[in-house]
Design a protein around this nucleic acid. Structure first.
Lengths: 129, 129
DNA sequence: CGGTATCCCCCTCGATACTG
DNA sequence: CAGTATCGAGGGGGATACCG
């Protein structure tokens, strides 16, 4: 079986294929953060434009305040998101992607586009139940 | 702010940016399956080569039998993975990506490569705690 | 070998209330 | 507006036992 050389060799060079992302390795935690239920959607929302807290809450439909705050803190700790708080009254806080965050978002976008384009067909084809 | 036209316009054409993947839409469920804790790793493992159950269990380190079975069933229901059982004794079951599964895996690979290459720096930069 | 069934703990997450 | 604190339900997920 043949796999596109550019992708397969890239992965093998990091030793993925023998045991994939060994359980103790740092990649697992980063992966969990990036692909977390709300992490993906927040990164995507910020990839389009910088957003304020309330705007983010409205854009990422269904996220609770708790999970928005928690996920933002995680993404900030990993250096994907920068928090910019202005000590005005009322307070104003903007969130933006860091350069590192943009690199991740750029790799998330093709996946999301594909899912958006194919979701209907996938759901329609699921076995009943 | 300028974003690469090829990615941004692609997303906007699916109406992502106003409210991102509205909570009720099918994309959310597909996204959850693809980016689930074990789903990503299983798709990645199968993208390198077809694998038997036991091989998959060893390759995806840390997965329990229950979660491996459960995740494989989900990926199969979504049409990403094909199960090929041979009624021999002892039984032999192979799993392979479907064409649809390969399309997803191809979009997952660049993300995984980036994470593998940057995980150490990210973890090292996390605040203490 | 390649699973399924069951029990049960713990941790995530949502709801609610409160604050600067 | 932009959060934090607390609580309680639910289900993800591990351990174990069993089956074809």
């Amino acid at each position: 079986m043949m796999v596109s050389a550019s992708t397969a060799s890239g992965l093998d060079s990091y030793g993925f294929m023998a045991g994939i992302l060994p359980s103790a390795c740092p990649s697992r935690t980063v992966l969990d953060h990036v692909t977390s239920k709300w992490g993906v959607l927040i990164l995507l929302a910020l990839s389009a434009q910088d957003r304020r807290w309330g705007e983010l809450r409205r854009t990422v439909q269904g996220v609770s305040e708790k999970m928005l705050a928690q996920t933002l803190r995680t993404l900030e700790a990993d250096g994907f998101v920068q928090r910019d708080a202005q000590p005005t009254i009322p307070p104003r806080v903007d969130y933006r992607l860091t350069p590192r965050g943009r690199e991740v978002a750029d790799r998330l976008l093709p996946l999301m586009e594909w899912i958006a384009a194919n979701a209907d067909a996938i759901v329609a084809g699921r076995p009943a139940g």
